[in-house]
Amino acid sequence: MRKALFVAALALFMGLSASAQVSLVVPQSQVAPEEVLRWLRQSALPAQEKAIWLRILPQAFEKDLVEPGIAQSFFQRLVGTPPSFISEITAIMEELILKGIPTDHLMNKVSQGVIMGRNWSMITNEIRLRAAVLVATEEALKPYKPAAEAKAAVSVRVGSFTIQAETPTWEDLVVEVAEAISDFIVGGGDLNDWIGIEAFVRSRLMQLRGRGLSPGLVDRALEVLNPELVGVIVSQAFQIERR
């Protein structure tokens, strides 16, 4: 009885006091692409990788494959890491960008890994895995891409670091499907459990329907998604992975 009263009092107290002590923050960073490039030029990144980034970044910004705010945070964390790590991560990102695939979320994953204090090989391995799944997903879903949407709405990206998710694109959908597959595998799921992976992707997409992705896009994806398609993606991704 005393315990119950104590718990009730604690909950009530927390509820009451919470209203008096919150602060409101809008985590929005407005960074111009030029600013990132300028920062990069003066950064302590190894010369070879710096040259690669300065070559591919402008078009990546232009095609909306990379969000400047995310890129800046990513570079800030990358500087100061071992050269071998920088070169491996750069190579993975370069390949994706040259293929026209968004890399925002993977840059974010790198930042996350660094702030988690993970060791470099663990971060590299997971980024490589996610990149391989992303490339395979992009290829496997290509035949189903609605023609009309094509380049009309490339201005919106995944991760929603910037606002407006009203017209998410096919690319966003591809990223979400790929990330769901990767989350399943990284989380300890069985690579060969295509039925399980498909169910996991489906439930993720249902959650995103109308929040991260438009209902139309999600419905289209749910139509074409099946365990065989997942099998195609996983098989291809892990060929790449083992390469």
């Binding site: 006091s17 919470a18 602060s23 809008v26 985590p27 945070s73 974010n108 702030i115 606002i163």
Partner: peptide, 27 residues
Amino acid sequence: SAWKPIPLVDPDGDGVWTLILKLPPGR
């Protein structure tokens, strides 16, 4: 926030740290 830390606050020191973030719809 691209994994940049944003501080939570506990002005009255009761151990409950809070923050309100304005986020657009999404995951």
